[in-house]
């Protein structure tokens, strides 16, 4: 495998605010690489630097061997981009949007027709080809953008929050397409998300927070590092229970919405032992494998809080649509 994206000490300052504080990583050719982090972590800023939209304040990065500052046009030809916000021309038809893209990227004339057909098939939009984009649903627009991003056969496809604001069914669909792409085209996919379940699908995940890369590994490895399983209990007296668990098992206990949770090794054996010996009345217990949310929690001491974030995104999206309405 080769390193299709290489990043060395990449930094971005906006005035005296450090949006990205110097990150180092690489992406292997052909993998799905995920950027996970809460709002304002610096995910989009990093993607924007890699895709030559924003000039880095410091550091270097190479895509497909090309320098993102010195060889902008070569980099641009090597990548496909799907932004967090839609960049379709809604007054034009799907076909017109795609045809313009071919021209922008210098796709050869005699290849255009076949390419457009091909990418529309990947995202199941063949029958909407001559419809004006305005009439598309949110999910269809997203799919069309993905199709457009593929037209020039990029080496790396960047997807910034590809499923934000979409219903679960459409999200699942978009993921089907992304996985299909990986298999079919052997394309490298670099995406950002703050949905845990989406990060799970990635080959490797980089966790970002406050402009720093705080972890980078496969989802399994990241979870393994959390250590064992997670036991969640509610009791008659949480205050006392917390103290008791800390004292008995020498572990950190977190409380969230009346539920105490802590890490245990060999969870199944521990659970039996725990119920037998714990002398504060237990209301409920739940033993589970760690999720990436636990990874995040352990790394930062905070939850990524999917619900809160997705609400905020819905609002953002509504605002955006409102603005477009007139």
């Amino acid at each position: 495998m080769s390193k299709i994206v290489e990043v060395k000490g990449l930094k971005k300052n906006y005035k005296d605010f450090e949006a990205v504080k110097g990150v180092d990583f690489h992406v292997e050719s052909g993998e799905i690489f995920g950027f996970l982090g809460p709002n304002g972590a610096g995910k989009s800023t990093t993607i924007n630097m890699l895709s030559t939209i924003v000039k880095p304040s410091e550091g270097k990065a190479f895509i497909n061997g090309f320098d993102i500052v010195k060889q902008k046009n070569k980099v641009r030809s090597s990548i496909g981009l799907i932004f967090q916000e839609s960049t379709l021309d809604e007054k034009l038809t799907a076909n017109e949007n795609l045809m313009l893209h071919c021209k922008f990227y210098g796709v050869e004339k005699n290849l255009r027709e076949a390419r457009i057909q091909e990418v529309l098939e990947i995202v199941d939009l063949t029958d909407r080809r001559t419809n004006v984009v305005e009439t598309f649903s949110g999910g269809m627009k997203r799919r069309l953008e993905i199709a457009r991003g593929l037209l020039h056969y990029p080496k790396v496809l960047f997807l910034d929050e590809p499923t934000v604001g979409l219903d679960p069914q459409t999200r699942a669909h978009i993921w089907e397409y992304i996985l299909k792409l990986k298999e079919k085209a052997g394309i490298t996919i670099f995406l950002t998300t703050h949905y845990m379940d989406e990060a799970e699908i990635c080959d490797r995940v980089a966790v970002m927070d406050g402009g720093n890369l705080i972890a980078l590994d496969t989802p399994d490895e990241l979870k393994r590092n959390v250590g064992g399983d997670i036991l969640e209990v509610t009791t008659e007296n949480n205050e006392e229970a917390k103290k008791l668990i800390k004292a008995t098992y020498l572990t950190e206990v977190k409380e969230l919405e009346q539920v105490l949770s802590f890490h245990v090794t060999k969870g199944d054996e521990f659970l039996v032992e725990f119920i037998k010996t714990f002398n504060i009345p237990i209301k409920s217990v739940n033993l589970r494998r760690p999720t990436l949310n636990d990874v995040f929690l352990q790394l930062t001491g905070r939850e990524i809080r999917e619900e809160v974030i997705s609400q905020k995104d819905r609002m953002k999206k509504q605002l955006r649509q409102g603005r477009r309405g007139h």
């Binding site: 030559t52 939209i53 981009l81 021309d89 893209h101 990227y105």
Partner: peptide
């Protein structure tokens, strides 16, 4: 405003 300028500007 509508974002299309990005599609234009990130092209080669």
């Amino acid at each position: 405003e509508f974002g299309y300028m990005r599609e234009i500007l990130v092209s080669p």
